[in-house]
Amino acid sequence: MAQEPNDADGETVYIADDLYTFMHAGPGRNFRILGSVTAGTKVTMLQRDDTEGFVEIIDDKQRTGWVDARFINDQPSVREAMPELQQNLSDTQISLQDAQQKNDLLNQQILDLNSRNKQMQSELKELQTRHDRIERELANKDNKVQLEWLTRGGIIGLIGIVLGVIVMLIPRKRRRNDGWM
């Protein structure tokens, strides 16, 4: 004869994963077996009989009975956790694929940037070479311009000296001093 449950609001617990256990009509092995509860089944614990070591439960088929307390576990069973774990695995695999695609894209961008960097470094070296060549040409032109100005100044100075000497050598008319003025 089955006992009536003492409390309809009980704590959720699980049957251990590695077995199935018999559900008895009362708290002990000497009570009639009402059926079995499969390993990992989510059950509701109504009360505990510590003297006999049995727990009153309501199983997934809404049957009320007593099972050995050794087979009650607070942790969700593997069977209960498996769908969530599979969903997490699926989500993780999708995230991993997305990350791999992003990684591949970033690696391609890195290769493109490295290629552009090498090209720009080559252009920079070419521009530096041209800059150095143009600076040398400019320095040479400055030297030539200074030399031209120096030469022209020297020629003008020499012409001035020669003209001054020639002018000094030209005889001058003497003035007469007989006039009143």
Score class of each variant (00 low, 15 high):
residue 1 M to L: 04
residue 6 N to C: 11
residue 8 A to N: 15
residue 10 G to R: 01
residue 11 E to Y: 04
residue 24 H to F: 08
residue 26 G to E: 02
residue 29 R to D: 14
residue 31 F to D: 03
residue 32 R to Q: 06
residue 36 S to C: 14
residue 37 V to T: 04
residue 43 V to P: 01
residue 48 R to V: 09
residue 50 D to P: 12
residue 53 G to V: 08
residue 53 G to A: 08
residue 56 E to F: 05
residue 61 K to A: 13
residue 66 W to T: 06
residue 67 V to P: 00
residue 71 F to S: 05
residue 76 P to Y: 01
residue 78 V to K: 11
residue 78 V to S: 14
residue 78 V to Q: 09
residue 79 R to I: 10
residue 80 E to A: 12
residue 83 P to G: 07
residue 85 L to V: 06
residue 86 Q to M: 12
residue 86 Q to Y: 02
residue 94 I to L: 11
residue 99 A to L: 05
residue 101 Q to K: 04
residue 101 Q to F: 01
residue 104 D to H: 02
residue 104 D to S: 04
residue 106 L to N: 07
residue 108 Q to T: 10
residue 112 D to E: 14
residue 115 S to Y: 03
residue 116 R to D: 14
residue 117 N to E: 05
residue 119 Q to R: 06
residue 120 M to L: 15
residue 125 K to P: 00
residue 130 R to S: 14
residue 144 K to N: 08
residue 147 L to Q: 10
residue 148 E to A: 15
residue 148 E to S: 10
residue 155 I to A: 03
residue 158 L to A: 13
residue 161 I to N: 03
residue 164 G to A: 09
residue 169 L to G: 15
residue 171 P to S: 03
residue 171 P to E: 06
residue 172 R to L: 09
residue 173 K to N: 09
residue 174 R to K: 12
residue 179 G to T: 02
residue 179 G to P: 00
residue 179 G to Q: 06
